[in-house]
Design a protein around this nucleic acid. Structure first.
Ligand code: SF4
Ligand code: SF4
Lengths: 144, 144
DNA sequence: TATAAATCAGATATTTTTGTCTGATTAAAA
DNA sequence: TTTTAATCAGACAAAAATATCTGATTTATA
């Protein structure tokens, strides 16, 4: 179903982008995130809990509680979210699923694929979520 | 678990590569493919059945039966196998899982991602499996 | 023609991923 | 201090993907 990120990771990125796109507010309740992104509240809470424990998001309990970014958006890379949720496997595993990969016996697709995944890595590692604010807002607007 | 292709697709590609790498033999029983690739016989049969019905592989029933390529290996593109098993979704879906994609409201990752997936498509569409023979043989050797 | 060795089809089982529920805890505000 | 609105933690449920099994069918060959 999902292309390259797990569904949890897709939604985690969406939620973090949402958090980065709302300005001048302390914390955002998961209910609002769920409503805006059109996904179940319970699921996005679960995912944001994971991101909280890995230090990307911070949470405030109790009434008037909710989630917010744990750091400045220009310090949060897309890669951080991917690693926190899906781990680093996609960057090292064989695209054809062969076991015991070694570069001495590269499988047929190795060269092209490793180049592509390297570029993906670079992009995720360079882009910070503050660069996305404007586009995120338009995207969320279009969901309505 | 799998990166971008489903496990079935990974194994389908492996099996087709194996078929292309054995020379001068009519048909290969699934038992041999399973043994060489170290995967369950029943699973690879199932997958090869799918590839048979989509015309990439052909099968011969009965004693001395087995599977073989349905066409000349220089006519079989990696893309054929991917489309037959996983379909074309990966080439069109949003990498962040947003619904109702439209290029008027591209999501933040769109530009970079669409470039990468285009390159992947091109590669899968250009490379034919006969180009892989030598490397495939070495890879299979290394599994032993 | 009988036997053996293979695919084929479809049902079933297992595992993983995705999603939901429940109850405890926390904290703001009445 | 009580009520209310939120996260949190972990169990649970459902769905999808992956894998296995069983029996029917097919075909080569003795
Ligand atoms: S060399 Fe081949 S088997 Fe190893 S990681 Fe690369 S693509 Fe996979
Ligand atoms: S524009 Fe955004 S939402 Fe649409 S396909 Fe591209 S990445 Fe996905």
């Amino acid at each position: 179903m999902a292309i390259i990120f797990s569904r949890k990771c897709e939604l985690g990125i969406q939620a973090v982008l949402y958090l980065s796109s709302v300005e001048g507010r302390n914390v955002i309740p998961s209910e609002e995130i769920a409503r805006e992104l059109k996904i179940p509240k319970e699921f996005i809470s679960k995912i944001l809990q994971e991101l909280t424990s890995s230090g990307i998001v911070s949470s405030k309990k109790g009434k008037m509680g909710g989630f917010s970014l744990a750091k400045n958006p220009n310090k949060i890379h897309l890669l951080d979210i991917v690693l926190a949720i899906d781990g680093s496997e996609i960057f090292s595993k064989c695209v054809l699923g062969f076991p015991n990969c070694s570069s001495e016996t590269p499988c047929p697709m190795h060269n092209t694929w490793s180049q592509l995944i390297d570029e993906t890595f670079k992009m995720l590692n360079e882009e910070t979520i503050d660069q996305f604010k404007h586009k995120t807002l338009r995207k969320i607007e279009s969901l309505k």
